[in-house]
Amino acid sequence: MNVLEIKNLTKKFSDFIAVDNMSLTVAEGEIFGFLGANGAGKSTTINMIAGLLRSNEGVINILGKNAAKNSRFAKMNIGMVPQDLAIYEDMTAYENVKFFAGLYGLRGQELNERVEEALEFVGLQDKHKSYPNSFSGGMKRRLNIACAIAHRPKLIIMDEPTVGIDPQSRNYILNSVRKLNEMGCTIIYTSHYMEEVEEICSRIAIIDHGKIIAEGTKEQLKSIITNTKDLWIEVKSTEKVNVESIKAINGVEAVQIDENLIKINSDTGVNNLNKIIEHFINSHLEIRSLQEKAPNLETVFLTLTGRNLRDQ
């Protein structure tokens, strides 16, 4: 079942088209990564999914229902973790979570239990009486998450949930995302940290100029940009290296020597690793290390958009 379906979604601000005829589906149980540079249309799309903006054209379905026509149903099933901390400094951690959970109609004993559950989930149960101004950046981010999950939404939208926090808190949050996913939540995750997206997302969409320019698993995305792989072999000495004989190996397309490093570009469709190693042994070249350099998500993003994600 699809938790989210977007069909031909368009949003214009005067003459500027922020989202251009976008279509997308997110299935139940996915952690869906949303990658895009600033101004690419990512936040506008998220705002439309969360019901904060109306689209000019297109349809958004949440759990099979039209979100525009069933706004309350859609919002009840979405938990929004905004990039900017949206917590009240003059309310304790407990009161913050209780306030937001109460907006989803929870009351009484059920409300208190859910609040405690959410605080425990983000590891703030012992800080429930503290005010956010005494919290570290990471703790505030965790409280921000607790406010979005207490009502047990089916779809959680996390917009840059790890911005500006220490590695320990980041790990905590990433583990929490995984746990939420294991508990049955579908998650839309955006981040400027490519390695985070690569680490936790099961499927990724790259958005640029309001359009999805690539979508799939990370392996599928990487395969879009290249049919070759790089093999980096470090040897003790390159004196005995015969470039032409390496090039003669089936599948090898290019060889480059960089000090003690021999960079071999090879066709991904040919399994020639054994033959390459055999050639090095027969040539009495002492191998110190060997690395297969597949393109990473950052390379994919850079290649597809011409822009570096973190330099925006």
Binding site: I87, E89, Y104
Partner: peptide, 14 residues
Amino acid sequence: ENRTYFRLLSTPIN
């Protein structure tokens, strides 16, 4: 200014 308005509108509150 605190962006809580944005967060509030993502709940059933309009």
